[in-house]
């Protein structure tokens, strides 16, 4: 009885009406996930700088907007700060020979102090009533259009870039560094380039996030890498299930952004279900796991070997 009362207390319209906000937040994280996709998938480099550069993007954007600089210019400067962060990790890794994960962690923890200095504290608010912001939780309908345009433009640029000679060299560096070296390409340069590009996207996304939520907080980057990775993998798995072998690089990038949207939809779903709040992360993880498992298990049952096996078993019987 209680269970029925619980189900009756849920209001499906609320889930729908919260959706646009979740989509905006999801696309912002999806752009961050594009950055993670470049390092983890294309370059095969476990880059943990992103927790630092995401918060740095937010901090720089907010502080500059408060100083009276227009939001788009602030966002552009924040993106350059992200680029610098990526270059530092690249420098630590390629010139000083520090292993990839450690190099990223070192840059990430340095950003903690840098962000505190930038913010002059741990938290700064940017009031949507006072400044003209690119995206905001206050104007979700216009934010959603802006974010869709941003995502489309970024995906197109990345698609174009990774088709150029230089972009292809980055992808090849991730696939087979020995072969790339044999072609006379400087793999260290390619790594630094990709790290810089990746952290540009991450800081850009952090700058958008801080405007969307109306504040920058020193903790806003904590765990960003987890969300980014989840988005990349959700996007890949779902893209694979829906499109399968027709998946090309462009669609792959689109699905990475979509992965972020799905992740935030799941969080919205868990909140809407009014689960005990202490269990939010457990439920989020479970629902994401279900999303990930279904296409895999489906693929297993539809596998041609399984059919062959069955047929064989019947013949033998």
């Amino acid at each position: 009885m209680e269970l029925i009362a619980y189900f009756l207390s849920l209001k499906p319209l609320n889930l729908l009406s919260a959706l646009p906000g979740n989509i905006v937040q999801g696309i912002i994280w999806g752009i961050m996930a594009l950055g993670v996709f470049i390092t983890f998938r294309l370059l095969n480099f476990a880059d943990l700088t992103v927790d630092g550069t995401f918060a740095a993007g937010g901090a720089v954007t907010v502080v500059l907007i408060l100083a009276g600089i227009p939001a788009p210019i602030a966002l552009a400067i924040a993106t350059i700060v992200g680029l610098l962060g990526g270059l530092v990790t690249g420098f630590l890794h390629t010139i000083l020979g520090i292993p990839d994960i450690l190099a990223g962690i070192l840059t990430q923890i340095s950003f903690w102090s840098i962000n505190l200095l930038v913010l002059d504290g741990a938290n700064r608010a940017v009031n949507v009533d006072k400044y003209h912001l690119i995206v905001s939780l206050r104007n979700i309908s216009s934010s959603i259009v802006t974010m869709l345009v941003f995502a489309a433009v970024l995906v197109s640029i990345l698609y174009w870039y990774f088709g150029t000679e230089q972009g292809s060299a980055i992808r090849a560096t991730g696939n087979n560094p020995q072969m790339v070296k044999a072609q006379g390409i400087n793999i260290d340069f390619m790594k630094v380039l990709a790290l810089g590009l990746s952290n540009c996207l991450v800081a850009f996304s952090g700058g958008l996030m801080s405007q969307f939520q109306g504040f920058a907080d020193i903790k806003m980057g904590q765990g960003a890498i987890v969300i980014g990775l989840a988005a990349v993998i959700i996007g890949e798995v779902i893209g694979d299930a829906l499109i399968g072998k027709y998946m090309n690089f462009y669609i792959k990038l689109v699905f990475v952004v979509l992965g972020g949207v799905i992740y935030y939809f799941v969080i919205g779903l868990v909140m809407w279900l009014r689960m005990p709040t202490d269990l939010l992360k457990l439920f989020t993880a479970s629902v994401v796991a279900i999303f990930l498992a279904i296409p895999y298990l489906k693929a297993k049952t539809n596998n041609s070997f399984v059919f062959a096996n069955k047929g064989g078993a019947q013949k033998n019987a």
């Binding site: 937040q25 939780l137 979700i140 903790k219 202490d278």
Partner: peptide, 23 residues
Amino acid sequence: FDEQNANGEPDISATICNQFVSS
């Protein structure tokens, strides 16, 4: 009461407030 907890992630509080406003 619809009690929600951001579990320490600042940006989740934006997700929560979005939920509140839209409902």
